[in-house]
Amino acid sequence: MMNNQLVFATNNIYKTQEVSAILSPTYSVLNLTDIGCDVDIPETGDTFAANATLKSSYVVQNYHIDCFADDSGLEVEALNNEPGIYSARYSGKRGDLENMQYLLQKMEGVSNRNARFKTVISLIQNETNYLFEGVIYGKLRTEPIGNEGFGYDPIFEPIGYDITFAQMDLTEKNRISHRALAMQKLIAFLKQ
């Protein structure tokens, strides 16, 4: 039986392989490289859902293959949910260390450390857009701890843990993370 093709709007081969293993043999998962898309798809939306949808829509419109895409970031309660959609370039630069240091400066002396990581996945299948959200709540540390992960992981401590994402074993982080939670909802939907 021929399986269905589905594009994951990413260039990350590891993300592609992980999702591919879960959805095989029902779906054959391709990434942007596999379909010859080397465009940096603009993320000009004002929400995670809008940015994810921009990416999945671009692929569907230009390559005529069903697609899913994600957008995610950190939202800090005391900063009115900043950095949010600007998480990857919060400091004005695209650098994990610069963004994390900039956030820590803004949070100096702030007692409310509540934060959450959020991911929204947009799946466009048969011309319908489905959205899947994953959220993990926690708090910000005052200084980075740990060497694993990326982005704000060294300063984010999820509720129920006394370590940061960057101190966590990758398997454990991938089990509880915002991206994992959104991906589980997508996979459950695709396997129906």
Rank of each mutant, 00 (worst) to 15 (best):
N3T: 12
Q5S: 14
L6H: 02
V7I: 09
V7E: 09
F8P: 11
F8W: 02
F8V: 03
T10H: 11
T10M: 12
N11P: 05
N11S: 14
Y14F: 14
T16A: 13
E18L: 12
V19K: 03
S20N: 11
A21G: 14
A21D: 13
I22V: 15
S24R: 06
S24I: 08
S24Q: 13
P25D: 04
P25H: 03
P25Q: 06
Y27F: 12
Y27D: 11
V29H: 03
V29Y: 02
N31W: 05
I35D: 04
I35C: 01
G36T: 07
G36N: 09
V39D: 10
P42Q: 00
E43M: 06
T44C: 00
G45D: 09
G45K: 10
D46S: 13
F48L: 03
F48W: 02
A49I: 07
T53H: 09
S57Y: 01
V59A: 06
V60K: 10
Q61K: 14
Q61E: 15
Y63L: 12
Y63R: 12
D66A: 15
D66K: 11
D66H: 14
D70G: 14
S72N: 07
G73L: 04
E75F: 00
E75M: 04
E77V: 06
E77A: 08
E77K: 02
A78E: 10
N80P: 06
N80R: 04
N81W: 02
N81T: 07
E82Q: 10
I85W: 08
R89V: 03
R89N: 07
Y90L: 01
Y90R: 02
K93H: 06
K93S: 15
R94T: 09
R94E: 10
D96Y: 03
D96K: 04
L97N: 13
N99I: 01
M100C: 13
M100K: 07
Y102D: 09
L104I: 05
L104K: 09
L104W: 04
Q105T: 13
Q105R: 04
Q105I: 07
G109N: 04
V110M: 05
N112E: 02
R113L: 02
R113Q: 05
F117I: 05
F117C: 08
K118S: 05
V120P: 11
Q125R: 09
T128Y: 05
T128D: 04
T128V: 13
N129Q: 15
E133K: 01
G134Q: 01
V135S: 01
V135A: 01
I136N: 11
G138E: 01
R141M: 12
E143Q: 12
E143D: 03
E143S: 12
P144N: 00
P144Q: 00
I145R: 08
N147G: 15
N147L: 05
E148C: 15
G149M: 06
F150W: 13
Y152F: 07
D153P: 01
E157W: 00
G160E: 09
Y161V: 05
I163V: 15
T164Q: 06
T164L: 07
T164G: 09
T164V: 07
Q167S: 15
Q167D: 15
Q167N: 15
D169R: 03
E172I: 11
K173I: 03
K173M: 02
R175I: 13
S177K: 02
R179Q: 11
R179F: 08
A180V: 04
L181K: 14
A182I: 11
A182Y: 08
Q184W: 01
Q184S: 14
K185N: 08
L186S: 15
I187N: 15
I187L: 14
A188I: 10
F189H: 14
F189Q: 09
L190C: 07
K191W: 01
